[in-house]
Design a protein around this nucleic acid. Structure first.
Lengths: 343, 343
DNA sequence: ATGAAAGCGCTAACAG
DNA sequence: CTGTTAGCGCTTTCAT
């Protein structure tokens, strides 16, 4: 373990003060009108001695760590891992590292993770929150900690968010089913109507139905708790099936739920779409090749990552922007495939 | 931005020295035989004043950050995002955060990421490396920086690794094809035979073939560069197709390549498995439901994450273990599905 | 059993 | 233009 050379070592061997060295290596040489010549000498010595600034000491001193936090509900969900991938890439280009946290939809875990990140003095947070209120984020706002909400957002929150048109997307899905004459539709969602995506997707779906004087009875809504998704969907579908009450179509509001619906419909040998059509929110590359291929609303994943990171970077660079940025709402597309095409 | 209360604030308001407070909050009270009573008072005051130790200052002082780094080639690949998810969960339970880096198979990026993590004084690194030699890791070993290689490993390296039986898994795949009478097989791999997984999977496959006096000619090996995977596979398959030389089966050595093969085979309307069978290394939940369902070698993803984190934690807790741990080799399974079942 | 004090490596007032 | 100096908040000898 080679002993580290510190800034004083460099200064000493150069016969200068730490200040000069510090200024030069931080690119503030010109700003402080330090001799071009001196600067050269410093830089030279630095490489010569292979001086590596102690990042921790610097962070401790400046409060900046060049690290951002990314909190998502489940990093192994393709949607989030893709978003994470884009964010990681952009961050890397700007010299930021990304700390990733997975909350498993647990509010307590999320809160502790936020606290941890703040304690660690990360420069900003991008988060897909499971919380019911925006309190945590109002707090961050007060404390001046840059952050951006993604995917899910809060009403009346000044924290900027990047989301997609969940309402509109769900309407597209509904319309697509309705125009094919389908009226008896079940809706599969994660429990928790406080989650904006869930709420908006359900609301959008309902709004389109109601445009056609249709509605979804409570019995047609499957609310799965995060930890019991499989069981809930399995049981609900089975009970429909054995009571001879399979819905004519199912709209599942995320990629995971959609896929699980496919699984259990297949296990029950329900013919898709002939007996029950299926459409989901959030498309996966795999949906194109399943049997039958699955219709889904496609989210602009790359743009979400991009917009979120840019908003965050803006705040980091200019703290006065906090609470003043506009939220971003991105459009979605519908990919109609065999699982929902009746005609 | 509420001003932070520091350890001196606590000490002052308690009329004690920082030392006592520090010792107590770090659980070293008993060790230093500090009055039970004093300890109580400190703890009380700490919560009362809502004292939050400055993690950065502590890290700066101790060189410990309670953070580990996870470097993978592509976090959006389900295999890695699952591994990441398990590691994140275990780390969380042990009070560690995880910094995730994606290398896109770029050796330079990987090296810079390692350096960055080391500079940041992360406590350890779990890495799936794209490098040709173990130099970087020999280095880490010398510097006493805990690390574990996952997925890919190096021969003659003292760095512990967690990998699966790639050789054996590939043999299973080959055997499965061969016993069905298939002899003309193409192999699809990422370019870079220095990558142990690629090497071992190819070697295993070949070894099984040669057991049956079979072999794979160069023309049947598709080596795709990371950035041109789609094009390479598309072109190769097209050229086979138009020359009327489709192989009787394809073995693709990772989940991504496998899926892409499926895509282009379908686009060329090649019947799977009737005309060309397909089997891949690394199973995905989706493979069960594609059309046709895809056969694949299944890796124990959870165990990989678990073993890697445990090995790392051991090193972190006991530095003297470095370079002395045994590597872990995990078994794989074969899931035979329709894509490769001819009989 | 507790305290004083040094110092980790760095940055940023402030002097000169 | 460059140097001196004072901490940032914490841990950790070393005294007492």
């Amino acid at each position: 373990m080679a002993k580290k050379v510190s800034i004083s070592d460099v200064a000493k061997s150069l016969g200068m003060s730490k200040t000069v060295v510090s200024l030069v290596i931080n690119g503030k040489g010109d700003l402080h009108r330090i001799n071009k010549d001196t600067q050269q000498r410093v830089l030279l010595k630095v490489t010569e001695m292979n001086y590596q600034p102690n990042v921790l000491a610097r962070g401790f001193r400046t409060g900046k760590t060049n690290t951002i936090g990314l909190i998502v509900t489940e990093i192994s969900n393709t949607f989030y891992s893709k978003v994470a991938s884009y964010i990681e890439e952009l961050a890397w280009q700007q010299n930021y590292s990304v700390v990733i946290c997975s909350t498993n939809e647990l509010v307590e875990k999320e809160k502790r993770q936020i606290k941890l990140l703040v304690d660690r003095k990360i420069d900003g947070i991008i988060i897909s929150s499971s919380q019911k209120t925006s309190d945590s984020f109002d707090h961050l706002l007060e404390e001046g900690i840059p952050h951006v909400l993604i995917d899910r957002s809060f009403e009346n929150s000044k924290s900027p968010s990047v989301s997609v048109d969940n309402f509109g997307g769900a309407r597209m899905a509904a319309r697509h089913l309705i125009t094919q004459g389908i009226t008896d539709i079940a809706l599969v969602a994660l429990k928790g109507e406080h989650v904006s995506t869930t709420r908006d997707r359900i609301a959008g779906f309902r709004s389109s139905l109601s445009d056609h004087n249709l509605s979804i009875p409570e019995s047609r809504i499957i609310h799965a708790k995060p930890r019991y998704i499989h069981d809930t969907i399995k049981n609900s579908l089975q009970s429909y099936y054995y009571q001879n009450k399979m819905p004519r179509a199912i709209f599942a509001i995320d990629n995971n739920l959609t896929f699980i619906c496919l699984e259990y419909l297949q296990k029950l040998s329900v013919k898709i779409p002939a007996e029950t059509a299926l459409i989901g929110f959030d498309d996966l590359q795999y949906f194109r090749y399943t049997d039958p291929s699955i219709s889904a609303i496609e989210q602009p994943v790359e743009k979400i990552g991009e917009a979120a990171f840019n908003l965050l970077l803006e705040q980091i660079k200019d703290n006065s922007l906090m609470g003043k940025q506009n939220s971003v709402l991105l459009p979605v597309d519908i990919n109609i495939r065999r699982s929902s095409k009746i005609i």
